[in-house]
């Protein structure tokens, strides 16, 4: 029983981890916390449906490809149209702008695709396969695999390549980085494009598991919790936080009360912010005056 709960909870955890990775990427790369990211995940999944509607008879995979391309453009639009003009605005304005972006995407979907849920195909088989006494679902495994894969790629990018160092420099000190030849605006543009594509990947993976409706983006708050729990600047932390959150929720849901399940994650969010704002794996942030 316990083993089964744990195995199933890892899937939910991987979903949170996937979304948390996007948050951390944008925050680590550009210093902005994107409050509309959860809605971007939802929007990505809807893009696949919209592509299939626009071109009748379009198979699933080409539609996914189109959705990825469109979301890359969306990322460029978000940076060029909103984040770049607001680069010198107050933090408050940036937070509100990112909230507004998410709301626009959510309401766009609600207006043009309706408020009701849409069916979304699974990537792999949903039939459970018994592995060593516990049931494992291949479709769920895919989510875990993709989260870990994306973590590995991003981790290598940030830690091992010169480009990763350029990103960190650009985020750390915009003027300093541009003095040593980093094209800061290009770096930020790229981060937004990559993060937006990542949102669509997450959306395609997550949509069949959850219900694909305009409000699916509220899952974003779980992604936040995962990112905060792991440490907002740490990529491995995001994955660790996501999976820990998934397990905690499953344990509380199974053994205590399913009503408490969601409340636990929000409680964790507040507790971590108050007690250990740098998260489990994040470095200590020193506030400069």
């Amino acid at each position: 029983m316990l083993a089964q709960v744990l195995v199933s909870s890892v899937t939910a955890g991987a979903v949170y981890a996937l979304i948390a990775l996007g948050f951390v990427l944008i925050h680590k790369g550009t210093g902005v916390v994107h409050f509309g990211y959860g809605d971007q995940v939802t929007f990505g999944a809807y893009l696949v449906l919209i592509a299939q509607m626009a071109v009748t008879g379009l198979p699933f995979w080409p539609a996914v490809f189109i959705a990825l391309v469109v979301s890359a453009l969306l990322g460029a639009l978000i940076y060029g149209g909103f984040m770049w003009p607001l680069r010198n605005a107050s933090l408050l304005a940036k937070i509100i702008a990112s909230l507004a972006l998410g709301t626009v995407l959510r309401e766009f979907v609600r207006a043009f695709m309706g408020p009701n849920a849409w069916p979304f195909p699974f990537l792999l088989s949903q039939t459970a396969v018994p592995v060593g006494g516990v049931l494992v679902v291949p479709a769920n495994l895919a989510i875990v695999g993709v989260s870990l894969g994306i973590l590995a790629i991003l981790f290598l990018l940030f830690e091992k390549t010169l480009f990763g160092k350029a990103i960190m420099a650009a985020c750390d000190n915009r003027i300093g980085a541009s003095l040593i030849g980093v094209r800061v605006s290009h770096v930020f543009l790229l981060i937004w494009v990559v993060a937006s594509v990542l949102a669509t990947v997450a959306g395609v993976l997550v949509a069949p598991l959850l219900t694909l409706s305009p409000d699916m983006g509220l899952i974003g708050i779980k992604g936040f919790t995962a990112a905060v729990l792991g440490g907002f600047n740490s990529l491995p932390g995001a994955v660790l936080g996501g999976i820990l959150l998934g397990i905690l929720e499953a344990l509380v849901g199974t053994y205590i009360s399913s009503a408490l399940k969601d409340m636990i994650s929000y409680g964790i969010l507040i507790a971590v912010i108050l007690i250990r704002p740098q998260g489990l794996l994040g470095g200590l942030l020193v506030k400069k005056v």
Partner: peptide, 25 residues
Amino acid sequence: QMTLRVAGHYLALATLAVTAIVQLA
């Protein structure tokens, strides 16, 4: 009192969580 330790993004998150918790309750 929370604002002693929390500002900016984290404050937005924490107050967001308060709204979510109250609604669930």
